[in-house]
Every structure is written in C-alpha cells, then in structure tokens.
C-alpha cells in the first residue's frame, strides 16, 4: 500500500502538469503580452527610481523595506485600533462601499424606472441630475460631514452619492430605450402592470442597468479612498495611505496602491460576471 502511494500521486501530478501545459498553450497568445507589459513597466519604474531623479522608491522596495515587507507578508494581523493588516483595512473600506453601493443601486434603479417611464418626470429631473452628477466625490465630503456629523455614515453617504448617478441615468436610459416593438406587444396583449415590469421592462432595461452598475462600482471604490483620506481616524485603506504619507513610509503607500488597484479590478470583474449570469448580451 505504501509503495503504491507514489505511483497513485505520480499520474495525478502529471495530469495537473499536462492540464497546466494545455492551458498555457491555449492561452499563451493572450497572456504573454500583458506579462511582458507589466515586466517592462516595473523595470522602467525601478530604473527610474535607482537613477535618483525622484524620491519615489521603486517596486523592489516592497521587499527591501522591512516595514513594508511585513505588511506584505502578514496582511491578517490585528493589533487593535488602527494598527491592522492590509486585509482588514481593505475589508473595512469594502464594507463601506458595499453599504453605500447597495443603497445607490436600490435608489438608482427604483428612481430610474420611475423617471424613465414618465416623460414628464424625466424632463423635470433631467437638469437636476445632470447638475448633481458633475459634483466631485470630494466635494460631497464636507457636506456629508456637516449633515451627518459622524465619519462612518458620512463616508457611506459619499459612496452613495457618487455611485447613484450612473445607475440612475443608465436605468432611465434603459427604460426609455425599450424597443417600441416590445411595448407594442405589451399593449396588444394588454399585459398587467406587474407582467409588464417583470416581462418587458426589467429584462429589456437590464443591460443598461448593468452598464450603470459597472461604472458605479468603479466610482464607488475611487470615492471611498478619497473620502477616507479626508476623514481621518478610521480603519480603511484610504486613511492607511494618508497615515503612511504623514509618517513618510512611501513604499507602504505603493503597496496600498497595489491593493486598491487589484480590488478595483476584482470588483469590476465581479459585476461583469454577474451581468453575464443574469443578463447575457443577446444578438
């Protein structure tokens, strides 16, 4: 039995190797260019930093700087207060985004359907929406702080107010763009209001709604960082950056930026995946 064990694992690891090889062969043309691109970018950055033309450390400093290396290797430590691993920092920010974004999605879609189905309402609200949409997330921060007095709800409000416009405006557009043919089918069949919403309006507007949701998730993530930088004294990746800057730990900032970029990418892919599942694009 014991002697047979290696012979059982051997073919399995072989199989894994073979499937990795196959995967690589198939996807190599898609994977090689981005890998080269990233390598060149990092190399140039590192060389630039070595040349002494800037104080900005190169990417290698993530490893060479001890503090940063620890942060990199132990993302899960929690020493209480604000002294937490980057995983917890990111999670805290994500939690705020989740709350604000969910509120934005609910309000945005509901209001969008309402406004989209009523040409009068659409005309009435159009200038207001276009005006408010243009206000930068950071500009909302002092307003939110004054209005809500506390950091936590204010941060969530900033997420909400940033994310709601693309959802709202795309939903309105999606409802307005329902092909006349579908509306005609509904009219001829005299569908009930409920049937109309469930069978015509939502399925038809869904691609637009998802476009809004995807734009909004990116904006929400951007906004939370900005908001946290301004609202000091909370756990979150944004404040972590601000804190590191105050203490001149530049390579920590670079590490945090990598986190932010990576999480943003994940969020976008997540919504895209959701869209694929719920509303696949049709010919």
């Amino acid at each position: 039995m014991v002697t047979q064990a290696p012979s059982r694992t051997q073919p399995r690891s072989n199989r894994v190797l073979v499937s990795v090889q196959q995967f690589w062969q198939k996807r190599a043309p898609d994977l090689i260019p981005p890998i080269i691109g990233i390598a060149v970018f990092l190399t140039v950055w590192q060389l630039f930093s070595w040349s002494g033309a800037t104080r900005l450390p190169g990417p290698l400093s993530l490893w060479t700087d001890t503090r940063t290396r620890e942060l990199l290797l132990y993302p899960f430590f929690d020493l209480g207060g604000l002294n937490k691993g980057l995983f917890w920092q990111t999670l805290a920010s994500l939690g705020r985004v989740a709350q604000g974004y969910t509120a934005a999605a609910i309000v945005g879609i509901a209001a969008g359907v309402l406004v989209g189905t009523s040409p009068w309402l659409n005309k009435a609200t159009y200038p207001i929406f276009q005006f408010l949409r243009m206000v930068a997330p950071l500009a909302w921060v002092p307003i939110a702080l004054v209005a809500l007095q506390q950091n936590q709800p204010a941060a969530i409000f900033v997420i909400f107010i940033t994310a709601v416009w693309p959802i709202l405006i795309n939903t309105i557009e999606g409802v307005r763009q329902i092909p006349e043919d579908y509306d005609n089918v509904a009219k001829v069949l005299q569908l009930s209001r409920k049937d109309y919403y469930l069978n015509i309006l939502f399925p038809s507007a869904l691609p637009y709604i998802f476009t809004g949701l995807r734009i909004a998730i990116g904006l929400a993530w951007l906004a939370i960082i900005a908001a946290e930088i301004v609202m000091s004294g909370i756990v979150g990746i944004g404040f972590f950056i601000w804190d590191a800057y105050q203490q001149n730990y530049i390579s920590e900032i670079i590490l945090a930026v990598f986190y932010i970029g990576f999480v943003g990418l994940l969020l976008d892919r997540l919504i895209a995946l959701l869209q694929m599942k719920i509303a696949p694009t049709r010919k």
């Binding site: 005609n184 089918v185 009219k187 001829v188 005299q190 069978n199 399925p203 509303a279």
Partner: peptide, 19 residues
C-alpha cells in the same frame, strides 16, 4: 386602444429575447 382581439405579427417578429 390596442387589444388581443387584434393581434399583430410584427415585421421584426418582436419576440422577447429573454424568453
């Protein structure tokens, strides 16, 4: 108003693509 007693077959079929 339109009604199911005068059902229309539209030029571009107008089937709901999600059904």
């Amino acid at each position: 108003e339109p009604g199911p007693d005068r059902m229309v077959v539209f030029q571009n079929y107008s089937l709901l693509p999600w059904r």
